[in-house]
Design a protein around this nucleic acid. Structure first.
Lengths: 124, 124
DNA sequence: ATATACCCTGGAGTGCACTTCAAGCCAAGC
DNA sequence: GCTTGGCTTGAAGTGCACTCCAGGGTATAT
């Protein structure tokens, strides 16, 4: 059986973070053994990995909680889930665009640091 | 002359944030009029815009402070500045990669929500 | 002269997402 | 039987980047 330490290794997530995710409800309650210790299933691990991945990418907890809540409410929320995922994907795409343009500005500065000094219009 | 309210509008930055940026040193001290009111130059505005842009993209304050400090130290820090900008650009590129992969996962889920239910391996 | 509308400062407060802590339970090894 | 190690909980603490506030100054309009 997979305990919380192992689950943390397998999902690259601190045990405290896993407990926190369960407590706030973005992952479903984990099964316990007779001592109250968490026993992780493969599905639990997939859920943790997914939430970590989305958090790392920049989704906030409240969006993930909404999603987790929709899942818990069953199949009739499918349309709402798709809408939420689509909205969040669009947000991530905007983020990528902003970051790309920052990368371009950095590249420009890196490439032109020789030519001008810092009073040139494009430099600070 | 450009006061802080106008500077905020022109740079899309709250006046409180501009004061904060000056206080912590990621922008140079702003010139004051006889009443102690800030008078922003075009260069000040460029600096604020740059810092906002970088912050929005995800650079942290400490990296920006390092950069601002190097600028203040003059031309002999050019190599260090380029190194810092390059390092930060690489970090942003990694961020973009992570975010892109999250977008792909979301796209996959959006596209396949009909086919399977949530016990499929790729869904949570 | 009084109201209005700016600005200033230092310091406290906020929101987010963890992260750490204190106190305690249970099982295995010496 | 007692220590060690892993787990449990609720609650408090942390770090980051702002954001707000109290108390006060100055200039313009009525």
């Amino acid at each position: 059986m997979i305990n919380i330490k192992r689950a943390g290794q397998l999902t690259n997530t601190a045990p405290d973070t896993i407990r926190y995710y369960e407590k706030i409800g973005i992952i479903a309650p984990i099964k316990r053994d007779k001592n109250g210790f968490r026993q992780f299933s493969e599905r639990d691990l997939r859920r943790i990995k997914f939430m970590r991945h989305m958090r790392t990418a920049g989704l906030n907890i409240s969006a993930l909680l909404e999603y987790a809540t929709l899942i818990q409410q069953g199949d009739q929320t499918r349309a709402a889930r798709i809408a939420l995922l689509t909205e969040q994907r669009d947000l991530l795409q905007q983020k990528v665009a902003v970051t790309q343009s920052a990368i371009e500005q950095l590249d420009y500065k890196i490439a032109h640091y020789d030519d001008h000094m810092s009073d040139a219009k494009h430099l600070i």
